[in-house]
């Protein structure tokens, strides 16, 4: 099955993440990664999903059925910038610290914490570069690892501009935050 990167803009209301994740599970697709955060508009959140499926068109259509989902696209074959971050706590006795520091330099990773026998390294890059880095440092002993999941953005003028979807007037009535 092919892996697809999907970008979605959603209304920032409580439960929206549960709705998206629940729908994908119910329809029998597997989420490999899911990253959520603010977009450039305060009331709109942005998701990047990586899904394994041969019927990604159905996934996109089903996501559109959710009331709070504003725009969904499969950007897998588009020109995109993809990034992922990993934070690793490595087993790092003084004997190997130099090696880890120089290896981190090659991958443009940052040392963000040094303890008595551990180091925390932070690294950002394309998913494959992150994968490479993890393999390279695995030999030192990974005590903890946290990956953020992939985030994606289409290059150039095309893309997912959240401000296009903000209604300019909301009446004088209360538009509740719905929390």
């Amino acid at each position: 099955m092919k892996k697809h990167t999907i970008v979605a803009l959603v209304q920032d209301r409580p439960g929206v993440l549960t709705r998206v994740a629940g729908l994908i599970r119910r329809r029998g697709y597997n989420i490999e990664s899911l990253a959520v955060g603010h977009s450039e508009q305060p009331e709109i959140s942005r998701l990047t999903l990586v899904i394994e499926s041969d019927h990604v068109e159905q996934v996109v259509k089903q996501l559109y059925r959710l009331i709070e989902v504003i725009k969904v696209s499969d950007v897998t074959d588009d020109p995109i910038v993809e990034r992922e971050m990993v934070v690793l706590k490595l087993h790092a006795p003084s004997s190997v610290r130099h090696e880890i520091v120089s290896m981190s330099g090659v991958f443009e990773a940052k040392i963000v914490d040094v303890g008595a026998s551990t180091m925390i390294v932070e690294m950002t890059g394309t998913p494959s570069k992150v994968e490479n880095f993890i393999e390279v440092v695995r030999g030192y002993g990974i005590k903890e690892m946290m990956r953020t999941g992939r985030i994606a953005m289409v290059r150039g003028a095309r893309g997912h501009n959240a401000s296009e979807y903000v209604e300019n007037a909301n009446g004088s009535g209360v538009v509740p935050t719905l929390n």
Binding site: Q11, I67, I70
Partner: peptide, 12 residues
């Protein structure tokens, strides 16, 4: 209550 309502449903 405020009954002056404009629906905010950009995704629907």
């Amino acid at each position: 209550p405020n009954w002056d309502i404009k629906l905010n449903l950009p995704g629907y």
